[in-house]
Design a protein around this nucleic acid. Structure first.
Lengths: 336, 336
DNA sequence: CTGAAAGCGCTTACAG
DNA sequence: CTGAAAGCGCTTACAG
């Protein structure tokens, strides 16, 4: 690759002049400008981005720490972040932690700490002026306790201390909507298949659901409720446990669990939707392939990503001050 | 952020000495080394990656042009590429084209050309030593006709001219496997719902399927076959058209189409799997939520990504020479 | 074992 | 309108 210096030599001018021409500075004669542009075309010269950034001390790059790129939520979140940042003329650098390739990353908090700190170091070495941490699933992120020299926004999860900007979903409002929907269909014996007990979403959804039921004077039997994990298989096993009692509806904490319930129902010749109302959460693509259609909550992933980027820019413009500590978006009820 | 120079001053040594200490050069007294490391910890100094790369003229960065990050194939492909490159101590820069946000990008070939050329320019300005183009769906990529100054590998698609390294799937072998499977179940009236007519996969699958049938002396009636598009809705419409004729099996060119067929069957009280064998392609997650289970072909996306990265490294090591022009991986039959 | 000096590819006052 | 010179934050022969 040809350099500015070489280009200048070929044009018979100084590097300063070439630089001015390229950057559209005003005081340049048309003739030399044309000559330079001509030569750029001929040689295919491209300014060295690194050198330029080094010189002008650019502050227009944001680092993204992605816990797991292949998580279904990651791509839309990143899409939201990048589209917003692109509009604001910011660059983006991705750091892929790939936590799934370490089997026990969930349990090993110190391992996660280590990875995050590595990731942050590398991004800071690359001169990012801020970091957005894109979580694989919602939980408290404890890795940013020691102050970094750049602002951090947590996307799709919660911080350890309350003072950190983060963007996530509003489980309370969303769960309420879902509960109201189920009640509106006249159900009074309602089961719930919850995510894992240590998960924040699961906890909030559990609480909110119970609250709404009691507000409507509908009894909630703890025997109709089970905490499990998030997979289809978990849903099926849970269904076998719970659905023996004569419930008429079941609220699953995500669509995979609901898919497992469908499995169980099919095997036992119970018709979902008719004999038992099943609802899910996430509006994952798989939910639109279940028969019969399942009602679920749509995660506003794109919006969460965009908002995270927005908070980041806000902090950058105001010396790491953020107007809010956290934003939570309600989900949209998708009735099927 | 503190600089090397400032760090040196605080330690009372020259920048050269600090640099040597950081980079583990041998000829340094233990005492000064310790003092420097101590100071690095205290100040939280991080070497400026850009400056370092500029100085040593690093060649260890690969650029990824992603047509559409939210395409279901993209994340696993990227995962495969990045994990391989990471092992080889290469950095990765992502350029997200986000083609879905331009509604008519498919039809507008010149627009795609423009975007790709922009993307490549930007990556080259960032000093990548090679570019891997991650396609959103398989087709001939015509954007790399004019020689770039870095080698290019096309991932999950085909080049315009035969001379470009690319990695994709082996539609012929895969389709043959599927056809053999369907025939082994004793079917002789077999329908096929194909992807869009201008798509390479659709064309190859169509041809291969017909060939295998004729090799087994099973008649293939063109009336049982339709080219459509790739969505669930398309599958449902196609099913309505084709399945009036008394076929006993249908091969769909992807799982979404198969999902559409299921829709049609349910609505018409025909039992998939029992009254009609439906098979898909892709092993998309949605396929494992269809009832009853559907047989499909698993795309080796991770492997495709890894192989793309491998070819890239090979080219880099041998002055853009590649041992092969193209690699095609067979898919795995998933029987359900 | 340590430091002065040059240079990676750029930009930017400043002088002419 | 143009160019010489300094400098962004590093590394690397080379001299001592």
């Amino acid at each position: 690759m040809i350099t500015l210096k070489e280009l200048a030599k070929r044009c018979g001018v100084s590097t300063a002049t070439v630089s001015n021409a390229i950057n559209g500075k005003s005081n340049i004669s048309e003739a030399t400008k044309v000559r330079i542009m001509q030569m750029i075309k001929e040689t295919g010269y491209k300014p060295n981005f690194m050198a330029r950034n080094l010189r002008i001390n650019s502050k227009r790059t944001i680092g993204l720490i992605i816990e797991e790129l292949t998580a279904f939520s990651s791509a839309p979140l990143i899409e939201g972040i990048m589209s917003f940042l692109e509009e604001q003329k910011y660059e983006t650098i991705l750091y892929n932690m790939r936590v799934y390739s370490n089997p026990n990353w969930v349990s090993d908090e110190s391992f996660v700490q280590y990875c995050v700190s590595n990731a942050a170091s590398e991004l800071i070495a690359k001169q990012v002026s801020g970091i957005i941490h894109v979580a694989e699933h919602s939980r408290k992120i404890k890795c940013y306790n020691k102050k970094l020299i750049v602002p951090v926004v947590i996307c799709y999860a919660y911080p350890d201390e309350r003072k950190m900007p983060h963007v996530s979903i509003d489980d309370e409002t969303s769960t309420s909507k879902m509960a109201e929907y189920i009640l509106s269909k006249g159900h009074t014996k309602i089961a719930m298949i919850c995510g894992s007990k240590d998960n924040l979403h699961a906890q909030k959804r559990y609480k909110s659901f119970k609250r709404v039921l009691s507000e409507h004077n509908v009894e909630f039997d703890e025997e109709f409720c089970v905490f499990t994990n998030w997979s289809k298989e978990d849903g099926k096993i849970a269904a076998a446990k719970i659905l023996k009692k004569n419930v008429t509806a079941v609220f699953c904490h995500n669509d995979f669990l609901a898919g497992g319930v469908y499995d169980y129902l099919y095997e036992n010749n119970i018709q979902p939707g008719k004999d038992l109302l099943v609802t899910g959460f996430d509006n994952h693509l798989i939910s639109s392939y279940l028969h019969p259609g399942i009602t679920t909550m749509k995660l506003p992933l794109l919006e969460i990503g965009q908002k995270s980027a927005e908070l980041m820019i806000e902090m950058l413009k105001s010396d790491s001050q953020c107007s809010c500590n956290g934003v939570e978006f309600p989900c949209e009820l998708i009735i099927r």
